[in-house]
Design a protein around this nucleic acid. Structure first.
Lengths: 203, 203
DNA sequence: CCGGCGACTGACTGGTCAGTCAACCAGTCG
DNA sequence: CGACTGGTTGACTGACCAGTCAGTCGCCGG
């Protein structure tokens, strides 16, 4: 902790890359755009990163590992399953609120990129789905959720529903003012969990 | 109708493009891959299409307009809103069942591509969301659905949930055998509509 | 003051690929 | 049978860009 360089070049490049990827897309942008945006020489990018792909990989893993940690943490607490899912949704939506550009890049360039990045990071992505599925399964075991729904499939559409909200904000299809984030989250969780509730549906 | 060429070159190229895009991704493939796959000379691709992008655009619009027509058709019938949503889900999932490669290309390369294609075809994509929102809104007006949910947002997560199922099949994260498609559809619609039901929730 | 280390620079190269184009060939019509 | 039309061919080119590398500069330790 003794020395932190006054300007962390690596960070500087990473942050610039988020902006450039969000603005132009990964494939459409040039490495020189990133260097320019960071106010750094072209070659320096290759001093810190092996390739353009590695930059995206780094950005994704950095953020996704926080998501995984947050879900794990939430799951370990003694909470109603509905509350757990609410926290997961909140974390994802807050990630978008705090850094919309980074989340845009992640959902546009990684999460759905069935060739290239999605495949490369499949294990990490899958891990999130599995953890959500576990929350649902536990909810069923405890009798809170109806158990005629496959947890793996429920996990898919739970995550998909939230990601599509982010997508809606990215494309400006739904309003994204400050209050809208929490309202949207409350609605999705309320409705989706409502549908999962045991009282509704059956054994 | 008098004359259909024995081999419709245009169709042949389009079909080959689906396979190539699905296998390698739009950005990673070369136009020559499409020509080879179609068993056609490189230059002929440019006889029928202005550019590589136009091929993808054509593929998307062709299929998406069927989706829009199907939703419109369903909505015009006298059906319970839950039944309408079930039909929409069925159409999308059946599209995947009948041509998984094409649907893969659409959701991976277009639907979420916030730069490039997603933006180009935004109007068509948005149209689908609007029509789903209308079904929800009508359901609220008729008293079948709770009306404390914003139809535009509900439409987002309804579509998102389904698209994520396709994504799960594309990535082979959930089983995609013959019976699985209908089971998954029944579950999503049952649960999501369950959550939208008036009896559950309130005014 | 010197030598060396590592951050930093940016011109350059090698390879790739979208899109062009001039020529070819199979019908068809006069 | 010869001219014309339009589908078809694939070699070629021009642009573009990821990644390299030879070299500069400033700092620190001796």
């Amino acid at each position: 902790m003794a020395k932190a360089p006054p300007t962390d070049r690596r960070r500087q490049i990473l942050d610039a890359a988020v902006r450039v990827f969000a603005r132009q897309g990964f494939h459409a942008c040039r490495v020189s755009d990133i260097a320019d945006e960071a106010g750094v020489a072209y070659g320096l990018v290759y001093h810190y990163f092996k390739s353009k792909e590695q930059i995206l990989g780094e950005l994704f893993s950095e953020r996704w590992s926080l998501l995984l940690a947050a879900i794990e943490e939430t799951d370990s607490e003694a909470l109603a399953p509905r509350e757990k899912l609410d926290r997961v949704a909140r974390f994802i939506i807050d990630s978008y609120r705090h850094d919309p550009e980074l989340m845009k890049v992640i959902i546009v360039e990684v999460t759905r990129a069935a060739n290239s990045f999605g495949r490369t990071h499949l294990a990490e992505i899958r891990r999130a789905y599995e953890m959500i599925a576990k929350i649902v399964r536990d909810g069923q075991d405890s009798g809170a959720f109806r158990d005629d729904v496959d947890p793996d499939i429920a996990s898919m559409w739970f995550y998909g529903a939230i990601e599509q909200l982010l997508s809606g904000w990215v494309f400006e299809l739904i309003p994204g003012g400050e209050g809208d984030f929490d309202r949207a989250r409350a609605m999705v969780v309320e409705t989706l969990c409502g549908g999962l509730d045991r009282r509704n549906g059956n054994s």
